[in-house]
Structure formats: C-alpha cells, structure tokens
Amino acid sequence: MKILFDLFFTFAKIGAVTFGGGYAMLPILQREIVENKKWGTEEELADYYAISQCTPGVIAVNVATFIGRKTAGNIGGVAATLGVVFPSVVIITLLAGVIQYYSSLEWVAHAFAGIRVCVCVLIFNAVIKLFAKAIIDKKTLAIYLTVLVSSFVFNVSPVVFVIAAGLAGILLKVYIK
C-alpha cells in the first residue's frame, strides 16, 4: 500500500513540474525515477519512450503506466498514471473557470488572438519534428499526402485514417517490399 502512495505522489510531483508534455518530461523522469527512486534504468526508460511514442495515448501516461507496473504490478501502473494526471486535472479545472469568466473582456480577447498565432507556430514546429521521424521514404510520403488530402476532402472520423494507415503500413512493409 505504501508503495502505491509513493508511486502516486512521485508521479503527481512529476506531472506538476513538467511544462510541454511527454518529451519535456524525460529529464525529470531520469532524475526522479532512475536516480532518486531507482524504479528503473536509463535503458528501460528509453525503451518505454520508444514504445509510448508509437502506441495510442498520451506519452507521459504510457511511461507512467510502464514504470508503475514494473514497480508494483498492474495496480501500481494505475496508481502512477492517476498520479501523473492529477495536477493537470486540478490546475486546468481551476483555470478553465477563470478564463471563461474573463473571456468577455476586450483585452483578454486581444491576448488570445495573439496567442492563437503562437499556437499555429507551435503546431507547425511540432509537425516539422514529427515529419522528420515519420516520413522516411517515398511510401511514407505517399501515406502522408494521401491522409492530408483525404482529411480535407472526406468528412470522416480520424479513426478511419488510423485503421487504414495501419493496414497500409502492414501491406507495404510485410507483403510488398
């Protein structure tokens, strides 16, 4: 029981001090998990990151589940995951109420108009980084362009693209070389 609380609070601490999500969390995880708590090694952390990037869900949550499970079984995985999301839920819930209240003010509207420009640039930068890792040959470029164009032309759920792209990947990688 003590280990579950320890997992919850350690990951809550990590969640509370990380800005910018999964990738920004790595150095903090290295310090807390590998050096302080000794719940895992550098190599294990690298493996968990690699898998988390290509499995569904938020990277930080996936890594927390991995380490929690390794430390205290399946229930440990749940405890670590709840810990890492706990600060977000509290902080965002408090902020969302405040922002809704103030968003009718003129200067707040101007501020958010400015922020939206920044968000565009941040998304663009994230796409550039992801593009370099994901588009590695002509086939992956073809998948990228097909999905990009289709998502403007067809009004279907992203789930359709995910399943189709997964099947296309298997087809191109395993059966047609």
Binding site: C54, I135, T140
Partner: peptide, 17 residues
C-alpha cells in the same frame, strides 16, 4: 512494425490538417 510504419505518417498528416 509494419502497422506503425504506416501509422506515423498518417498521424503527422492529421496534425498538419
């Protein structure tokens, strides 16, 4: 491996959109 080979560019395309 094959599945992820196809998934990654698709994910990138959807974020682009």
């Amino acid at each position: 491996k094959g599945g992820f080979y196809g998934l990654r560019p698709a994910s990138c395309a959807m974020i682009t959109a």
